[in-house]
Amino acid sequence: MSLLSVEKLTKSFGGLTAVSNVNMKIEKGELVGLIGPNGAGKTTLFNLLTGVYVPSSGSIKLNIDGNEKELGGLKSYNVTKAGLARTFQNIRLFKDLTVLDNIRIAMHQNVKYGLTSAFFRSNKFYEEEVRLMKEAEQLLDIFKLTHKKNELAKNLPYGEQRHLEIVRAMATKPVILLLDEPAAGMNPNETLELTNTIAQIRKDFNLTVLLIEHDMSLVMKICERLYVLDYGTLIASGAPSEVRTNKRVIEAYLGEDV
């Protein structure tokens, strides 16, 4: 059984069908790319997977070690609890908070003290806060952001903001990480660094990654398998080398022969 299986997933907004009848299977540990021309429905598909939109029909099943769970129709925070974490195409950090707070907020769902402990600062409160701090600093270490932990997120350079979004998603302890155009707006050097980071965290945390990307150098280099969307439907899937020569993919990107 695949880790994530999407079956006949459809979303329509009024008369427009943004995603129609999409079938996908993602195995544990894979790094899968989702590509397609602008407006193909990639981000809509992400929003369906992460609970921002409710599917019009179809199912999304997450299978962790035999425990199957339907994600379609769940609220975002429950999808995150189930093990899917995401980043956003247009960066959505908590801009006026520090780097450390951004990460500690993402860790909130695993905090084990309640309202009374918070009000009266029980021993549990102190224990948990110390633990959060330690874990947050470990994560920042891995991404080389430790020296910036007290800076406001909005004051970080663009590339580091993108990195912080990934760190923040990692802080929710996901099983599957969904990256929405992580390399958008980066220069070739930054993209290369990001490519290495993604490969690294995937290895270190035993993660499954699904990423949307327009930068073909990144996609071809690290993705093991690709899904290609056009006008809301899947037009191709397979290894990067196969997809690259697929006629329908070339048509979708460059137009048909005259």
């Binding site: 992460t50 974490a85 801009k95 908070l97 909130h108 769902q109 309202l115």
Partner: peptide
Amino acid sequence: NFIKSSLGRACISIREDEIAAESMGI
């Protein structure tokens, strides 16, 4: 005490960006 706890930070994250907060499991 409330504001400086994890629950308080969850509240502040709603002010900062509700969609992001929800995506972070809040």
